[in-house]
Design a protein around this nucleic acid. Sequence first.
RNA 1: GCCGGGGUGGCGGAACGGGUGAGACGCGCCUGCCUUAAAAGCAGGUGUCCCUCAGGGGACGUGUGGGUUCGACUCCCACCCCCGGCACCA
Length: 805
Amino acid sequence: MKRYEANAIEAKWQRIWREQHAFEVANPAPGNAEGAKSYVLEQLPYPSGTLHMGHMLPYTIGDVVTRFRARNGLHVLHPQGFDSFGLPAENAAIREGGHPREITERNIAHIRASMRRVGWAYDWTRELSTHEPEYYRWQQWQFLKFHERGLAYRKGAPVKWCPLDQTVLANEQVHDGRCERCGTEVESRLMEQWFFRITDYAQALLDDLETVDWPESIKARQRNWIGRSEGAEILFRIDELDVDVPVFTTRPDTLYGATFFVLAPEHELVARIESDEVRDYVRRAAVKKTEERAAAVEKTGVITGLHAVNPVNGESLPVYVADYVLTDYGTGAIMAVPAHDQRDFDFASAFELPVRHVVRPPDVDVDERAAYVEHTEGEVLVNSAEFDGLPAPEGGRRIVEKLAADGRGRFAINYRLRDWGFSRQRYWGCPIPVVYCEGCGIVPVKEDDLPVLLPDVEDYKPKGRPPLAQAEDWVNVACPRCGGPAKRETETMDTFVDSSWYFLRYCDARNDTAPFDRAAVDYWNPIDLYIGGVDHATMHMIYARFWVKVLNDLGLLGFREPFARFYSNGWVTTGKTKMSKRAGNVVGPDDFVERYGADACRLNILFLGPADQDIEWTETSVEGMTRFVRRMWRVVNEVAEVAPTGAPAGGPLSRKAHWAIAKVSDDIGRRFAFNTAIAAVMELVNELSREPAGPDSLFAAETVVSLIQPYAPHVAEELWEHLGRERLWEAPWPVADPELLEVDTVEVVVQVNGRVRERLRVPPDTPDDELVELARASERVQSYLDGGEAARTIVVPGKLVSFVT
RNA sequence: GCCGGGGUGGCGGAACGGGUGAGACGCGCCUGCCUUAAAAGCAGGUGUCCCUCAGGGGACGUGUGGGUUCGACUCCCACCCCCGGCACCA
């Protein structure tokens, strides 16, 4: 028997697949988009130095599904590429010298080689990297379309600024007041920024979640993130400034309980207030870190001397400036109802402001000195003039209706989602194709002049202005509109823009006249199975959904959602921490593949546990997997030598094989239970090893090899050859024979009063009454029935007979 | 606080619309075979406790406490613990 040599076998088959273009797939000819397709995709990897085990999981899942679906006759698109712009390469260039491009391309070459070594079945002809001008040219083109529509705009806004990375961050990139990337505390700065108008799509992003097949947890995260709340917008008059100030509230029913009014320190009106105390307070609030502002126990604020008029009763409320009111949620101003809002109550306590209860629960005495913030069935309005006695929800509605009649209020919906700030003051990203002209203002670059190539610069270190500002020859251009002197935009795009459409480009990756051909994109999309981690649930996966909706509105493609089904893989952990380069706990596959072979590693990562839960990395388990692969190798080879050929006899081993076919097909095809499918094949191998020379052994061996192929494609291909067959990667997936799935005898359990007292071996189709008779005939059952009769008898055909006395 | 996920052997995990005896499969561990020895491999064992005429038999066991049911890891109620998301969001 030949020795099992993983490395040689794997190199051989990888070479063959490559020569045979085994996993390359063509787009359908125009008008001939027949045949079922499947688009399987894993989230675009960032090309850091090397792959690690955390990458093994999603890619191997994708690969198993790809190979399984291909053998089931589907036309499967499974591409791969690189999210190759971004800060890590730029920071490495600053740290170690060299150009971010060289660093990135070196990393890509390494990772691509690792990926090929693991044997993942990608169509490499469609590979893309987002830093290539062939790619970002079309991103710039799409930006121009967004800009034309007013969906990309520039505005001054307070932004999150990371002082270490010297760049603006998106809200999503700030966690607990710290930069998601480097952990530095984030500052607030007022800056001109580019934004995408994603808030226009807030409702659609929420509604269309109903149409996709994702885990509930991921949908819940997006719903949290979008944060829709229903309420009202109400205008308060401030006579001293001669303005009407809108506030958003979810509690219009408490309007009569408003006893003061608060503006956020950054509110535009605050600058108009002539008061040293106010100016001083605003200055101090501005330097507070986001974190300490949120963590502040004591409410702070300052009185302004202004008064806001409550539109419902004409009361004059004192106006405060306080930093517990956020500038970028709602309108940045609130009506304060201390009786029914804990925060307002805390502020009122600190400033000794009156508390007036206007909602009262039924049959309970409330402490009027405390806040009542709960909701109780049957609560009614009090102290609310003509609305007294109304149930609170109805009272709220009626109050808004009354205000609406006077033009002082309206029903309103507010979202937590903010517009997507996407400009970055860094070098290694996609240039934003606009120029600033002294005469014309912001002027988009002409389509024909794309791409705006990223120029080389001397120094990547940002020094208050973006690195691109150094490239003076590049910066200074003629205005595309008037020809006068103009300067290019020196900021670059957030890399989440790059990953918002890469899956579309794969469908037509070499197109040099458009981002993609609509027919190709419409054929392959939406993605049938998108695989990735939860950490992209709110950023990438919301942005990409937004992007697709816009492209749909622009008529560039024919669908509204990119990811029809999402499989969220767990994290690979060591101890309790997620394996990542940043955590410094990575174990690379290169090493393990070298030592144990790609097949054992692929099997191992999927056998460790359910792939949608976190998986603790252990080194011993991969040894167990090697043992299984060798055992399979030995058993199948033995069968190839000693088993008789010819049709299988339909004995127990055949039945077991058909059971395994059904189990594995269901586990991969429907349940995505990759670990139990492996267990089923192991069971079959165990049974086969007891009977290598039987009449059903050859069939069982073929089944083993065929079923394990999606997981361990190299050794499967080699063993397939030993069994005298060829080209397993394109062989039809086996189908279980329903007749052989039927067992010839089943064990039927007899219970007396819920306890198992006897077991019967009977044919599966034994009629109920016969079962009962057999059961009753048993001596053991008789002894438990104690001669008496059962009061009730329950029969589950093929399963059990239950007597209740 | 709101939302989502989860608690099963020494360990990772099975049991997928309530229907047998929970614990498949693997890791680890134990015993035996092979070997000068080791590794590898092979065969067997392995939830806990108790009884045993040695054939086996019994009780208890899926976070806790109740409930529904002939029957519950699975359904219902209450609670405890762990992980994650959102959060001065009006």
